[in-house]
């Protein structure tokens, strides 16, 4: 690390002297002066990348991703045979096909994404408080929201780079193994899938930043984050099924009642960020998905079975994406409210 830094300094020096020699103008020199926000972001990014925590998570996620790609590639032939021969979206199968031994890629993301988000944010603020660096940094001419925004931006930046790299890696492996080039539509669908994954992780990131503002101990905030995650993945589903049983319509119920009951249960599930995420991703990665709710026979009659165009798929999941972003912003606002006017004491 010391070596890296020396290199960095050497490079900075070079740059400095170049700009002095080159133009001799103050303008270029001033361009090196980053705003405090960008200074904090670059520090946080380098902290993330060097931290063991990130390296371990990266290794876990990369392994899961490669494993799922391996399974997908092994089973893609079978999937193609059994499927509609007119289905042109072979490439997307890389992300969704599985033989049951390993879940497909997008399930992995929905499972490991929260863990990634929580682990990158749970000690954002409170560890600085405990180390005594918070009051030192905030005694500099730095806006408080700069610190909060920078923590978020840096983690988001690292996550984005990582997801794009992984997504493109999977595409590259698929390209080499299957020899099939993706169409523009497929490529865009994967890009949107990655973007939605980033939104999803950023929700968990913001939630854990909120906990790190609220709780003084990093252990508490990590636990709170993981507890929320467990609640949403395990217990919430149980509660919904209990409610579903209790509210189930009788056998003599009209179609309308059954439909409204189905919608009610679906809406209960849609409180879950993971449900929103899996709705959105499955629609994007499986273009034949036409609706996320129940469809009546009248609605289906006369439709031509076939994939939706990308625009229509996006339109279908627009509420889900909006919901995810709204939840993210909500967490952000709450962190703001409690952080902006709080008293900053040393330790």
């Amino acid at each position: 690390m010391a070596g890296n830094l020396q290199n960095l300094f050497a490079r900075l020096k070079e740059k400095g002297s170049q700009s002095l020699k080159g133009n001799g103008s103050a303008g270029k020199r001033e361009s090196e002066v980053l705003s405090p926000f960008r200074v904090i972001v670059s520090k946080e990014i380098s902290d993330h990348i060097r931290s063991w925590r990130f390296i371990i998570l990266l290794a876990v996620i990369a392994m899961a991703c490669l494993g799922s790609v391996y399974v997908a590639v092994a089973n893609i032939g079978e999937a193609l045979k059994s499927d509609d021969p007119e289905n042109p979206f072979i490439f997307l199968k890389l992300f969704t096909v599985s033989d049951g031994t390993l879940p497909p890629f997008f399930v992995f993301v929905s499972f490991l994404g929260p863990l990634l988000g929580i682990s990158m944010g749970f000690d954002a603020i409170n560890s600085e408080q405990i180390k005594g660096t918070l009051s030192r940094v905030l005694a500099q001419p730095v806006h408080r929201d700069n610190l909060l925004n920078a923590k978020f931006t840096a983690a988001l930046y690292v996550i984005s780079v990582m997801f794009f790299a992984l997504g493109f890696l999977v595409m590259g492996v698929g390209l080499i193994v299957t020899g099939l080039p993706p169409t523009a539509g497929e490529f865009l669908r994967v890009v949107f899938f990655i973007i939605i994954s980033i939104f999803y992780v950023s929700f968990w990131l913001n939630l854990s930043i909120l906990f790190s503002v609220k709780f003084r101990q990093p252990a508490t905030s990590a636990l709170a984050g993981i507890a929320t995650w467990l609640f949403f993945t395990v217990f919430y589903g149980i509660i919904v099924s209990v409610v579903a049983k209790a509210a189930a319509p009788s056998e003599t119920a009209t179609t309308q009642q059954v439909v409204s009951y189905q919608e009610f249960i679906l809406n209960l599930l849609r409180v879950l960020p993971s449900q929103l995420f899996s709705d959105a991703t499955s629609t994007l990665l499986v273009p034949t998905v036409r609706s996320l709710g129940p469809l009546t026979m009248e609605q289906v009659v006369g439709t031509i079975p076939g994939p939706l165009p990308l625009g229509q798929s996006l339109l279908l999941v627009w509420p889900q994406i909006t919901g995810l972003i709204a939840a993210t912003i909500l967490c952000f606002i709450l962190s703001y409210l409690s952080f902006m006017r709080r008293e900053v004491r040393s330790r």
Partner: peptide
């Protein structure tokens, strides 16, 4: 780091 938070150029 502190210096750069105060907008002092790196060198």
């Amino acid at each position: 780091y502190t210096a750069r938070l105060n907008s002092i150029p790196p060198v």
